[in-house]
């Protein structure tokens, strides 16, 4: 495509099914379960979009399909106008730098045998960056980690610090798009607030496009300007955040909101 498009990430009628290994017979193929059932939306450049849903709604699968850690079984995924739906790994490699993912559990997504420096430097090396040391230092600065943390191992860090390393690893590559999958749900409220502040700042300063997967609508309200609500692999509501909170349209969204225990003993929590 000659011109860069205003829509960075487009998902069209996305379907994804996976074999259900819990029902696999001893011989023969496992039956397939439909996880995503025809999802469509477009993310504008520079937008921050929340993707919310209960467990099993398909939100993580959707995220993984968007950054092509999974291959969709139907529909299309377009990144900056390029169809990446069925691209092989070799074809994806030059694009991978541009869409990064931050994972839910920093303990399992950071190599326990590597120091923070190596964890951040490795993808830089793979993508052929020069002056790697300087970039590692800059990434640490950007996420508010002291430079001496570069010499630490993940187990020597707190949960909030580990999550910052995950963020540093992603932004060091100067991506256009970041997918964050439940990245604050394992953190204490205070670290949660700090990481949200950090993301807010990075999105603003670096002009990132962010898809933020979460089960927590309070967190999404704080960070995102638009919310996509998923239920059983389909979009039930997709609206600007302010509208959604003012008057949730879908029954399921209302149920999600009503289930949140607010820190307020007077809330009617029928």
């Amino acid at each position: 495509m000659a011109e860069p498009c205003a829509e960075l990430h487009v998902v069209e009628n996305l379907h994804l099914s996976l074999p259900d290994m819990t029902r696999k017979p001893i011989f023969g193929a496992a039956p397939r379960i439909e996880i995503l059932r025809g999802i469509s939306f477009a993310l504008a450049k520079g937008s921050v979009v929340g993707i919310v849903g209960g467990s099993g709604s398909g939100k993580s699968t959707l995220g993984r399909a968007m950054v092509r850690l999974l291959e969709p079984t139907g529909g299309r995924v377009l990144f900056d106008g390029i169809d990446i739906t069925h691209r092989g790994e070799a074809g994806l490699r030059p694009l991978r730098r541009r869409f990064q993912m931050i994972f839910q559990d920093p303990t399992s997504s950071l190599n326990p045998r590597h120091r923070v420096r190596t964890i951040i430097a490795e993808p830089l090396r793979l993508h052929g960056f020069a002056d790697i040391d300087a970039r590692v230092v800059r990434a640490l600065d950007q996420v508010g980690l002291a430079r001496e943390m570069a010499g630490r191992f993940p187990h020597e860090l707190s949960g909030g610090q580990r999550q910052r390393v995950g963020i540093a690893r992603a932004i060091a590559l100067e991506p256009d798009f970041i997918l964050a999958d439940e990245i604050v749900s394992g953190l204490d409220v205070s670290s949660q607030a700090q990481v949200l502040n950090l993301l807010e700042r990075l999105v603003r300063d670096l002009g990132l496009t962010l898809a933020f997967i979460s089960h927590d609508l309070s967190v999404i309200r704080r960070l995102c300007s638009r919310v996509i609500v998923l239920r059983q692999g389909a979009v039930v509501e997709d609206r600007p955040t302010a509208d959604l909170f003012a008057a949730p349209a879908a029954e399921y969204t209302r149920e999600l909101l009503a289930s949140i225990p607010l820190p307020d003993p007077d809330q009617t929590w029928g």
Binding site: S191, A193, L196, S218, L257, P263
Partner: peptide, 14 residues
């Protein structure tokens, strides 16, 4: 610091 979607300005403060 506790999330409270009804009061976004006064919640989620580090």
């Amino acid at each position: 610091a506790t999330p409270k979607y009804t009061d976004p300005a006064a919640s989620l403060q580090p």
